Structure formats: structure tokens, C-alpha cells
Amino acid sequence: MKRREAREKAVQTLFQMDNSEMTLEEAITYIMDGPIDPFYESLVKGTIENRDEVDKVLIGKLENWSLDRLPKIERTVLRIAVYELLFQEEVPHRVILNEAIELCKHFGDEKSGRFVNGVLSKFAEEK
């Protein structure tokens, strides 16, 4: 599985968990057929396991928004991207930002991509 597909599946899995009472294992099984890709698994489990820290950092980047007010798809994509920015140091930040924008375009709309770009660009400004 390519990393783009792994990210798409991770968004679907985490979005499913955000909208239901599914456990992590149930959500993974619901989305994935066959063997579990290691990168996909690291995104999903890492985002869940580090959610408090990810949310804390994410809240610090949101201006005039609360995490609860964000549309669910943008919140899900942002959580994955922030997890990658904080914990997946082998992936260049520019790649993470571009992938997050593309995920929003795929699952949301052009406005979603611009919003996510605005939030995540604050990470680039810090570097």
C-alpha cells in the first residue's frame, strides 16, 4: 500500500471512530481488507494514542476556532497531520502538509484544503 492510500484509509478509520462507538480494532477491520499496512497502522494507532498531545498542539494553532467546532473531516485530517509532524520525523513537513491538503480536497472541498493549509502552515513558520 502506498503512503497516500494509507493516509486515506487512516482518515476513514479515524472518521469512523469519531462518528460511532466502534473500538479501534472494529474500525480497522471495517475499513481494511487483508493484511494491515505498517504505515497505516502507525498513523491510526499513533494518532489515537497521542490524541491528547496532538489536540493540545492543534488547539494552539487554531485561531477563532475550537476543536469541537471544526468539521469532522478537517479535524480528522488535522489530527493525523499533527501526529505526523510531531512523531514521524522521517517524513518531510512539506510532504505532510501537501498530503493533508490533498486529503481534504478528496474527502472535503477546496475550502477544507485552504483551511487545513492555513493551520498547518503555522508549523512551517516555526521551523
Rank of each mutant, 00 (worst) to 15 (best):
Met1Phe: 11
Lys2Glu: 03
Arg3Asn: 05
Arg3Cys: 00
Arg3Pro: 00
Arg4Gly: 06
Ala6Lys: 06
Arg7His: 01
Arg7Glu: 03
Glu8His: 06
Glu8Gln: 15
Lys9Asn: 00
Lys9Trp: 06
Val11Thr: 03
Thr13Leu: 07
Leu14Asn: 00
Gln16Asn: 05
Met17Asp: 00
Met17Lys: 02
Ser20Trp: 02
Thr23Gly: 11
Thr23Ser: 15
Leu24Glu: 12
Glu26Phe: 02
Glu26Gln: 13
Glu26Met: 14
Glu26Arg: 06
Glu26Cys: 08
Ile28Arg: 03
Thr29Leu: 15
Thr29Pro: 07
Tyr30Met: 12
Ile31Ala: 00
Met32Cys: 12
Asp33Met: 15
Asp33Arg: 05
Gly34Thr: 07
Gly34Pro: 04
Pro35Cys: 10
Pro35Ile: 14
Pro35Asp: 13
Asp37Gly: 00
Asp37His: 01
Pro38Gln: 02
Tyr40Met: 09
Tyr40Glu: 02
Tyr40Ala: 07
Glu41Val: 06
Ser42Asn: 06
Leu43Gln: 01
Lys45Glu: 04
Lys45Trp: 05
Lys45Thr: 12
Gly46Val: 14
Thr47Glu: 01
Ile48Leu: 13
Glu49Phe: 03
Asn50Ala: 07
Asp52Gln: 14
Val54Trp: 07
Lys56Gly: 03
Leu58Asn: 13
Leu58Asp: 04
Ile59Gln: 03
Ile59Tyr: 03
Lys61Glu: 08
Lys61Val: 07
Asn64Tyr: 08
Leu67Met: 11
Leu67Pro: 01
Asp68Met: 12
Arg69Met: 12
Pro71Asn: 12
Lys72Trp: 05
Lys72Gln: 15
Lys72Pro: 08
Lys72Asn: 06
Glu74Arg: 06
Glu74Asp: 09
Thr76His: 02
Thr76Lys: 04
Leu78Pro: 06
Leu78Cys: 03
Arg79Ser: 12
Ile80Tyr: 11
Ile80Trp: 10
Ala81Leu: 09
Val82Ala: 09
Val82Glu: 02
Leu85Cys: 10
Leu86Asn: 07
Phe87Leu: 13
Glu90Ser: 13
Glu90Leu: 15
Val91Asp: 02
Pro92Leu: 14
His93Val: 13
His93Trp: 13
Arg94Asn: 13
Asn98Thr: 11
Glu99His: 14
Ala100Ile: 10
Ala100Phe: 05
Ile101Ala: 09
Ile101Arg: 07
Ile101Asn: 01
Glu102Pro: 02
Leu103Thr: 03
Cys104Arg: 10
Cys104Met: 14
Lys105Ser: 12
Lys105Arg: 15
His106Pro: 03
Phe107His: 14
Gly108Thr: 12
Lys111Ser: 07
Gly113Arg: 09
Gly113Glu: 08
Gly113Thr: 06
Phe115Cys: 08
Asn117Lys: 15
Asn117Thr: 06
Gly118Phe: 04
Gly118Lys: 04
Val119Asp: 04
Leu120Gly: 05
Lys122Thr: 13
Lys122Met: 02
Phe123Ser: 06
Glu125Gln: 11
Glu125Gly: 08
Glu126Asn: 08
Glu126Asp: 09
Lys127Met: 04
